Simulated scan of single mutants.
Amino acid sequence: MAELITTARPYAEAAFSYAKEQNKLSQWSDLLNNLALIASDAVMAKLIANPSVSNENKVSVFAGILGADLTTQAKNLLNAMAENGRLNAVGQVAQIFGQLKTAEDKRVQAYVVSALEPTVEQKSKLSAALNSKFNAQVDIDYQVDKTLVSGLRIKVGDWVIDNTAHTQLQKLRAAIAN
């Protein structure tokens, strides 16, 4: 997976640069998400991986499905990826593009898992703290996991705070074992 993300990054950055220059970030985001959805289909994944199918045919399948929604520039991106044997990274291109767009929009996605449903006041305080920490508008997705017993886990990109009872007990167990 890490290799595909590394492979996908230059394509995503090029698409992002072009889309930003053309003031079409939302359109490109939607288009790349549609391409990723198509590429994630099991039959399409087999077609992409099949070396006996020409690159032109692989790209034409994408074009046939999207029809007029596939712009010339997006088709050029697919052709470049196909020529370099990188069509299997379309999903990661869409993912990285989405991250770049989110950063450009000064928006950040956070995932909070807690043992109990947070109150409105707790959500407000957490939102304010995360907005301040990341200097961006933080969209928070809350989930309840009763197996955590108490505490919460916050994940924003690669940044993670895990203050759950489960994690604290694991740390204590490890400390006692050493």
Rank of each mutant, 00 (worst) to 15 (best):
K125W: 00
R86W: 06
T164M: 12
W28D: 13
N34Y: 08
Y18A: 11
A42P: 03
I48S: 04
K75G: 04
V108T: 13
N57T: 02
N178R: 14
Q143Y: 14
I154N: 01
L66T: 04
L31C: 07
A175L: 08
L148T: 05
I5V: 13
A103V: 10
Y18T: 04
A175F: 05
A14Q: 02
Y18L: 15
T164G: 04
I96K: 11
L66P: 00
Q22M: 15
I96W: 10
S127D: 03
A177T: 03
N34T: 05
D105A: 14
A63R: 02
A39E: 03
Q27Y: 14
L25Q: 08
R107L: 04
P10Y: 06
N23P: 03
A82Y: 02
T164S: 12
T167N: 13
P118H: 11
L152W: 08
R9T: 14
K46C: 03
I38M: 00
N163I: 03
N79S: 03
Q22W: 08
T167E: 09
A42G: 11
L66D: 01
L66A: 04
Q143K: 13
V90W: 11
V160P: 00
V156Y: 09
S52G: 01
S124I: 00
M81T: 04
Y111G: 00
K123D: 09
T72C: 00
A63K: 08
N55A: 11
